[in-house]
């Protein structure tokens, strides 16, 4: 029932997407990853640091009138790999989705190594980070093969 209560911290939405179980404090990064932080056309509600049985504390995001696609949601792998996503249609959950990390993070972030060939913004090939391990997450650049510092990496969002 605790979850139910948290949900009501924010008004129910009619249509849209709910991203639940975001690690506490990461909601703003998630908005950035989804390119929603500068978007003024979509109503977005944020709940941060609410108690959660599963995670201790968590953040929740509700995006109105937009159904995020699987490939958009996969971008969350870097900061919220365990989040659960619900597509809401006419006030009820129509679909549930999970973040799918796969074996590569493609065109989400730029490699953190300052002398990597991908630092030239005009080079057209995709940014590719290989998933070496999932828990804890370890990534390596496909091109320069440098291991990636995750804290630094979220500053390199494309």
């Amino acid at each position: 029932m605790a979850e139910e209560h948290n949900m009501r911290r924010v008004t129910a939405i009619k249509n849209g997407t709910v991203i639940d179980h975001i690690p506490s404090g990461q909601a703003l990064k998630v908005l950035e990853l989804l390119n929603l932080s500068g978007d003024t056309s979509v109503p977005v509600s944020l709940v941060m640091n609410v108690p959660s049985k599963k995670m201790g504390a968590k953040d929740i995001i509700k995006v109105e009138d937009r159904e995020l696609t699987q490939s958009e949601l996969d971008r969350l792998a870097l900061v919220a790999p365990d989040s659960s996503i619900a597509i809401i249609r006419v006030y009820s959950v129509a679909e549930k989705l999970n973040v799918n990390l796969g074996d590569e993070v493609r065109n989400v972030v730029r490699c953190t190594f300052s002398n990597c060939i991908t630092q030239n913004p005009r080079e057209p090939l995709p940014h590719r980070l290989k998933v070496i391990r999932t828990a804890p997450l370890a990534l390596r650049c496909h091109y320069c093969q440098r291991p990636q510092d995750l804290d630094e990496l979220v500053l390199n969002l494309l």
Partner: peptide
Amino acid sequence: RHPRQGAARYAQDAARVPILNGGDGAG
């Protein structure tokens, strides 16, 4: 040979012919 690391892999992804890496930065 290229001063940037990863340049040879990048070139190989862009090329049809084989690439022989003669040095890519500190790579």
